[in-house]
Amino acid sequence: MNITVRLFATFRFGRFASATRQYPPQTRISEIIRELQIPDTEISMIMLNGRHADPEQCLCEGDSIALFPVVAGG
């Protein structure tokens, strides 16, 4: 199935800004995070089709996920 993955800020370093990629059916968000080698502790917010999502959610054809790192400096 096709999943669009959007990465924000430092998550793009050495990866990509946005890409539509092929994954097997029933892939979970956490599996994509692992594949991209993004440490869980660096993630501030996960969105699935514009709504907050849990990493254990399974994806469907055409879904779009967005991963945001923690930004907290002042």
């Binding site: 800020a9 430092t10 869980d40 502790t41 660096e42 993630i43 501030s44 917010m45 996960i46 907050h52 790192p69 923690v70 930004v71 907290a72 400096g73």
Partner: peptide
Amino acid sequence: QLYGRWVAGKGLEQRLGN
């Protein structure tokens, strides 16, 4: 909501500075 998955520690500013 912005920090919904935050557990502990600083953000990317720790590595990148400002």
